[in-house]
Write a protein that binds this DNA or RNA. Structure first.
Lengths: 135, 135
DNA sequence: GGTTACGTTTACGTTAACGTAAATCTCTGC
DNA sequence: GCAGAGATTTACGTTAACGTAAACGTAACC
């Protein structure tokens, strides 16, 4: 059973291939590497991205959509891989997760309140449109 | 019936009063004014903020928590007040609202997926803690 | 009437997150 | 063997969102 046939789907990607897929520039991807968020392997001096690298990139972009800084995204990504040896570190990790959860719940409330605000505006706008149409 | 007694609760606020309430600096509040997001009245050269000004400030800060730029927040705030005269503008407003809604729904998905990721990490962390405790 | 506490304007400084451009390398097709 | 396509490094530029500091006004308080 060759590794390419395993279900893990472990192909690799070029930098501009990823850039196209996610609608960003290669400069951005290299910038993330500079900031320590990615570390692709090299073939010669060319970067080769694994599917794990691609996942990390996706996590960064999800963070961006939520308004996170790159530092915040890095912290979150660091939670995923198991470098949490001792008890103290595990407890810090758990409290850190709790903090993030609190923040995310605030964002949920904000989104819902903004959505209902937008609903109200839309209702008024449609009413105004109807008024100016059916006279 | 004096206006102070009406239910509208229309008092006014000083700049550092608002800064304290929202945990920001007066510099930040003046900066928002510079960018056209606030325009408090003046008594002499001192700024006096109405409760509408205070609401606008709250909207700006809600936008910040959602990762919006000040320009985006301004656009949203501008939707609230009725300067939408003609049909064309109303239709643009409605399509603009629809775009925002799409974005907010993406953010909702992102938050939920991040939350379940964090849940998974927390479960593993608690398991690791249990392991290192009860041996 | 001097100091203390806030307020103001003006202006330069800073950080994050890239954009942009130049110079070089490296393979591939013809 | 050379042109063109895509990769790389290096480095300076740019924008947003404030921070920081100086210099000044003014009202209250003792």
């Amino acid at each position: 059973m060759k590794p390419e046939q395993s279900g893990a789907e472990s192909r690799s990607y070029g930098i501009s291939e990823l850039a196209r897929e996610f609608g960003i520039t290669t400069r951005t991807i290299r910038f993330y590497e500079d900031k320590g968020l990615l570390s692709p392997r090299r073939r010669g001096q060319t970067r080769i991205y694994s599917s794990e690298d691609r996942v990390r990139l996706k996590l960064i972009l999800r963070g961006k959509r939520l308004g996170f800084s790159l530092d915040e995204s890095r912290e979150i990504i660091d939670m995923y891989d198991p470098a949490h040896g001792n008890v103290e570190q595990l407890q810090r990790l758990l409290s850190h997760i709790e903090q993030k959860r609190v923040q995310l719940q605030q964002q949920l409330r904000d989104i819902h309140s903004l959505m209902s605000d937008l609903d109200a505006v839309a209702v008024r706008a449609r009413a105004a449109l109807a008024d100016s149409t059916d006279n």
